[in-house]
Design a binder for these strands. Structure first.
Length: 319
DNA sequence: CAAGGAGCGTGTACCCAAGT
DNA sequence: ACTTGGGTACACGCTCCTTG
């Protein structure tokens, strides 16, 4: 049998350092020695050195340079899954008893979340982390919701902040807060001003459908949840622009005189900065639960629990 | 198409800390 | 005292991209 285990079995066990396997796993995820080093808390030369020792131990180059990235060899591909499974088992076993000291800990956490969540989360989280855990680095990544489970499974992200959706059984979750959509319009919008509508009031259906909309759409789709609600009442709206980020919705509203719809907490954050007014949708929008997701293997990990707690404290809004 | 800059990986030198 | 592994600093070579 020529799988990864038999390959390791043929090696000198005395030379196998657990840290080398962590470097290997980080390299499989990053395909870059500098970023792999960041992931495991080593410098780039140290990762290069560790790779050298791994190459000596396995008798395989493991990664070959291809342009500006490192490509795993067939042997590395064979070793990847058994090594990751072994590391997960060890992490889980140690996580049950390991303590975590934020003040002295040095490591990086990766959080998946759109610009909506990074805007709400990062200012407060960054302040809290700087004060209580200066050795911790927080990296926020933006991927479509469809990638959440895969990235959690790969270990590419530690936790994900996203709206509630169907997840595999192994994904653990916690509801952070409940949100709903509101409309935003430029404060000096002539049509809205002429209508006599005051901020915070419900926009009449005819005015809502008459104004050109900017829609947040990751894939360019021209229909959102609002359109389904409108269609049920025999109405439709005109989408003038779609953008892939919530910030771009706010900017388009501010500069192009469009109407946009944003989650209320995000709208409340950006409206004062861009001279926007917030209005209620013409119909009661369905509530959206915002969830914190993580792989259940991290459940007993004290460091992960600390991160989840910090996020929960930062994203704590009244329901 | 060639030149130059930027980015990246590798290797070496030297130092330090911890373990043997 | 020696070994090992990690750090920084630096040089070098390779590749990609931009620019003229």
């Amino acid at each position: 049998m020529n799988d990864g285990i038999s390959v390791i079995g043929a090696m000198n066990w005395a030379a196998v350092d657990l840290n080398l396997l962590r470097v290997f796993d980080a390299m499989m995820l990053e395909l870059n020695t500098t970023r792999a080093g960041d992931r495991v808390g080593l410098s780039q030369p140290a990762v290069s050195s560790a790779l050298g020792r791994l190459r000596h131990i396995t008798g395989d180059v493991l990664f070959v340079r291809e342009g500006n990235r490192m490509v795993p060899t067939a042997r590395a591909e064979q070793l990847a899954e058994p090594i990751r499974a072994a590391l997960r088992g060890i992490e889980e076993a140690l996580g049950r008893i390991a303590s975590f000291e934020p003040a002295t800990a040095r490591r990086a956490f990766r959080i998946l979340g759109s610009d909506y969540f990074s805007t709400l989360l990062m200012p407060g989280l960054a302040r809290a982390v700087r004060e209580s855990a200066p050795g911790i680095t927080i990296q926020m990544l933006d991927y479509p919701s469809s990638a959440v489970a895969r990235l959690l499974s790969d270990g590419a992200v530690d936790v994900a902040v996203d709206s509630k959706s169907e997840m595999p059984d192994w994904v653990a979750s916690h509801r952070l807060f409940r949100s709903r959509m509101v409309s935003i319009v430029r404060r000096d919008h002539p049509v809205v001003a002429h209508s006599g509508l005051r901020p915070g009031e419900r926009i009449p259906e005819d005015l809502f459908c008459m104004l050109p909309h900017v829609l947040m759409s990751m894939d360019g789709s021209l229909t959102g949840t609002v359109d389904h609600a409108l269609k049920q009442q025999g109405l439709s709206r005109a989408i003038a622009v779609t953008v892939p980020h919530f910030h771009a919705v706010a900017l388009a509203v501010a500069e192009a005189g469009l109407i946009g719809n944003l989650p209320i907490h995000f709208a409340e954050r950006v409206a004062p900065l861009l001279d926007l007014d917030i209005y209620e949708l013409p119909f009661p929008p369905p509530p959206v639960d915002v969830m914190l997701y993580w792989h259940s293997r991290h459940g007993p990990d004290a460091a992960h629990a600390w991160l989840r707690d910090m996020i929960g404290q930062t994203l704590c809004f009244p329901l």
